[in-house]
Design a protein around this nucleic acid. Sequence first.
RNA 1: GCCCAGAUGGUGGAAUGGUAGACACGAAGGACUUAAAAUCCUUUGGCCAGUAAUGGCUGUGCGGGUUCGAGUCCCGCUCCGGGCACCA
Length: 947
Amino acid sequence: MDYTHREIERKWRELWTARQVYRVTEDKNKPKYYVLSMFPYPSGAGLHVGHPLGYIAGDIYARYRRHRGYNVLHPMGYDAYGLPAEQYAIQTGQHPAITTEKNIKRYREQLDLIGFSFDWSREVRTCDPKYYHWTQWAFQKMFNSFYCYDCGSAKPIEDLVKRIESEGTEGLNVAQTEELHITPEEWRNMSEKEQQEVLMNYRIAYLGETMVNWCPQLGTVLANDEVVDGLSVRGGFPVEQKKMKQWCLRISAYAQRLLDGLETIDWSESIKETQRNWIGRSEGAEMQFRVKGGNDDDVFTIFTTRADTIFGVTFMVLAPESELVERLTTDAQREAVNAYLEETKHRTELDRMAGKKVSGVFTGSYAINPFTGDEIPVWVSDYVLAGYGTGAIMAVPAHDSRDYAFARHFNLPIVPLVEGCDVSNESFDAKEGIVTNSPAAGKKALDGFSLNGLTIKEAIAKTKEFITEKGLGRVKTNYRLRDAIFSRQRYWGEPFPVYYKDGMPRMIPEECLPLLLPEVKDFKPTESGEPPLGNATRWAWDTVRNEVTENTRIDNVTVFPLELSTMPGFAGSSAYYLRYMDPQNTQALTDPEVNKYWQSVDLYVGGSEHATGHLIYSRFWNKFLFDFGYSCKEEPFQKLVNQGMIQGRSNFVYRIKGTNTFVSAGLKDQYDVTPIHVDINIVQNDILDTKVFCAWRPEYENAEFVLENGKYVCGWAIEKMSKSMFNVANPDQIVEKYGADTLRLYEMFLGPITQSKPWDQNGIDGCARFLRRAWNLYFDKNDAFCVTDDVPTKENLKSLHKLIKKVTEDMEEMSYNTSVAAFMIAVTELSQQQCTSREVLEKFAILLSPFAPFMACELWQRLGHENIVFDAAWPEYNEAYLVEDTVKLPVSFNGKTRFVIEVSADATKEEVEKLALAHESTVRYMEGKTLVKIIVVPKRIINIVLR
RNA sequence: GCCCAGAUGGUGGAAUGGUAGACACGAAGGACUUAAAAUCCUUUGGCCAGUAAUGGCUGUGCGGGUUCGAGUCCCGCUCCGGGCACCA
C-alpha cells in the first residue's frame, strides 16, 4: 500500500497542534530532561538543509527521552536581534522589525514541516520586550556588582563601598581595571561623581575607555570574536583600533572559573581546547625595574613567563600606547618617539599583523637590572601589545624570536643562557636545557643569586621564589581573555536601561524595565559613529518623563539623556535557556522553584562556530547569575554536541567556449570549455535534465549537447552552500517530494552528526525506499492492514531485539547513522520473514517514532491505540533472543584466518577443547571482559570468541 | 611556531584488539513491461587462477613496534581540517 506522505503528514501536524501534544509543564513526579538546540537567526534566506541537522538530532534524542519516561523540555525560539537581522533589513530597505517578523514566520513554517517536538508555547524572541526586559535586568545586576577573588564570586557593589569606607582600597583582591590607592578618608572627601568614577573601576558591567575594534563600514564597534584577521566577520569590512568609551563586561574576572568549569562538562575535546586557547592562561611573574637616575620609587613593571632569563635581558620594550612611554622618554629623544607614535597610530590591526616589519625607537632612558645592576636601554615598539600583561617587557633576544628579530635589526647584544645553544642564526625558544651565564663567569649577582647548572624549569621556579622573597616582583597569572565590549552603535538591539546625569551613567529603576526600543524612521547607522537612537530624541524625553519621572526615586528630572548604544547580538542569547524554563514570568527571569526543577540544559546541540562567542558569553553570564542564585547550576550546558556543517555539492555543465554547445563531463577534456554552475534541482544523480535546462534560462533555450551514452553527465564540486552556486537544497522541497520522515532519516543517515559533510541528494531514495518497505510490513498484498495476534517466531524476535539493542545503544552516542542502517536490516529481515505479529510490529513502531514520527503516529493509530505513540514506553531488549544457535569461530594460523568453524553457541570450554584437538591443537584461555577468549596453540592457533 | 581532531572501495560511511568494507548511493547483469518509470533479484575493494563451485595473493595515508592476532594500542613521519598566535 502506498504511503501518502502529504496527506498523512498534514493530518498529524494539525492533530499535534490541536492537541498540544508537545506542551510540557513542571511535573515533579517525573525526572526532567532538557534538550536544547541553538536558536536560529531568522535570516531572509530561509532554512537550508544544513540548519535542521542539529535540530533533528536533538529532536530524536528528546523524543527518545520522552519514551523513557522523562519530562522533556525541548523549546525553540529566535535570536532576532543583532547585526545580521539589521544588515538584512538595511539591504532590503525595510524596518528590521518587519523583516524579522516576516523571516520568523517563514522559519516557523519550514520548521513545522519537519515535525519537531518543540513546545512552542515557550517560544522566546530576543527582540520581544517581555524577553529583553531580562537582558536589561541582567545588565543592571552586572552594573551593580563587582567581582571578589577572595570569595570567588560576584558581590553587590554596596559591599565594596562599605569596604572602601572602612578600609580603603588597600589589600583589595578584586577584579579591576587598574589598581587604585584610596584611603577611607580620601573616599569620604570625594564628590559623588568622583566616587562613581572610582566604582566604575570595579563594576562587572562598566563604562571603560579602551582600545576597541571600530568598523567604519558597519558603523559600530565589535567584540574580539566578531573580528577575524582584522576584518569583520559580518561583511568582511576592515576594522581599526580606536580608543572609545564603551560599555564592557568584566568577563576577564571569570577567566579562571571559565577554565576550571571546562573540566566538569561533557563537551568535545576540540571545543574545550578552543576555549582554553581563547582564555589563554599563562603563568609567569611580574618584575619591577628601577629607572636609571630616578629615585627608589621610580619603577615600572613588566610581565614575563621566563623569569629565568633575567640575566639575558639586553633591552626593555614598551608598547606605544603604554603610559610609561611619556614618562620614560628623554627630551633628546622626544621628537623621534613622537614621530614613531604618530606612525604606529595610523596602522590598523591588519597592517600591524600583516607587515611584521621590525620597527621601534629608543626612549633615551635606561632601566636597572635588579639582579646585576646593569643598565638596560628602554625602547618603544609596536610588537609589544598594550592590552596584555603590563604593556612592557624585558627583552631576551637569545631566547625569544621576536626579541631576537628586534635585536638583530637594531644591533643590540644577544646573550645566550642555555648550555650549548646556538643563537647565531635564530633564538633558542625551547624551555629545555641547562642554564649557564646566569650570572656570567666572574660576575656577581644580587645576594650571590645564581641559576647556573639548573634546568630551565628549576630556574623559573627559583627565580620566582627569589623575586617574591626580595620584593622585586610577584608571581602572576595572566589571561588573554579580554573584557567583552558591550556597546554597538546600531539600532536593532536591546537599548541600555541607562541614563546620564552629570556625565555619569545611572540605571533606570528596575520597576521601569523594560526600556522599550523606540521607533525611529532612520535606523541606519551614521558614518560619524553617532548611534541611530540619537534620531529618536522623543524617545529620550518620553521615556524619562513617562517612566522615570513618575517614579519618585529620581527627583527634578527634566531631561536626562539616555544611553544611545544598543547591546550586541550575544546579549540576548546569553541566558535564553533560562528563560525557556519560565517564559511568561513577569516578576523574574525564572522562578527559583521552576529553575530548581529544570536545573540546566542537559543536552545542547549547535555549531562549533560559537565556541569563542556565544558559548563563552553564556557560560560567563550564567556564572554571574549563579553567583547571585538566579541560576542553580554553575555551568549552563552539561553536554554539548556540535553538529557538522553541511556543505553544498555543486553541479557543473561545460560550455565549449564561444558556442552554445555543452559537453558531458567525461568528454570535456577534448574541448576548450568553461564550467558553469547549474541548478542542482534540474540534475539527478549527476545526470542533467536537458529539457529543463533549456527552459531554465533564456540564453540556454537553443543549447546543444554532446552526450555520452545518451546522457549528459554533470561535473561536481564541494563548495559552501550558497544561492549563487545554485547548490542550496531546500528542506521544503524535499518534504514535498519525499516527506518529512524521509528528510529526517536521510539527514541522520548521511554520517555522524558531528562531522561536516556535503549534502548529496543522491542517496535520499534509499531512505524513502526504506520507509515504504517499513510501511508495507503492516499491509498484505491486497493493501489490507494485516497485523495479527500471532505469536512471534523466534526469528521475528531476534530481528526485533537486535534492532532494539542497536538503536538503544546508539541513542546516548547519538550515532544515528548506524541506527538507520539497523532499521534497514530489520525491515529486510522482517519482511522476508513475513512477520505480521502485533507484538513485534508495535515495538517496531515505537522504535521508529523518534526518527519518523509521522509514520509512527499513523501506524500506532492503525494499530488501534487511542493515545499517541510518543508516550509509549521504550521497548527493552532481551539478550536471550539474541543468542545464536551456533557461533562462527575464526580459526587462525600464523595470524591468518584459515577457516571458520561453527560450534554450538552454548559450547563449553571442554567442548571447544575437544574441537581443538580435532584440529590437532591445544587450548589456551584468556579472560575477557564479558567474554571468554580461547586461544588454541601451538600447531594451529584458533582464536575463539564466545559471545 | 604551539595545541586539538582526522585519513578505510567509484561515493557517504560501518567495524567492544578477533572473518575489514555493515548500511546506503552509484555501477553492471537479470526478472516484470510493447517501452519507460517504479518494483524485485543477483554481483560489486584490487589482482591472479579456474567452465564453475571455489581457491590464492593483496589491501584501512607512510615507516617501525607490541600482540597468537592491529583500521583499532605504542613510537616516528606525511597530508588534510580546525583553534590560538609579535600574548613576552
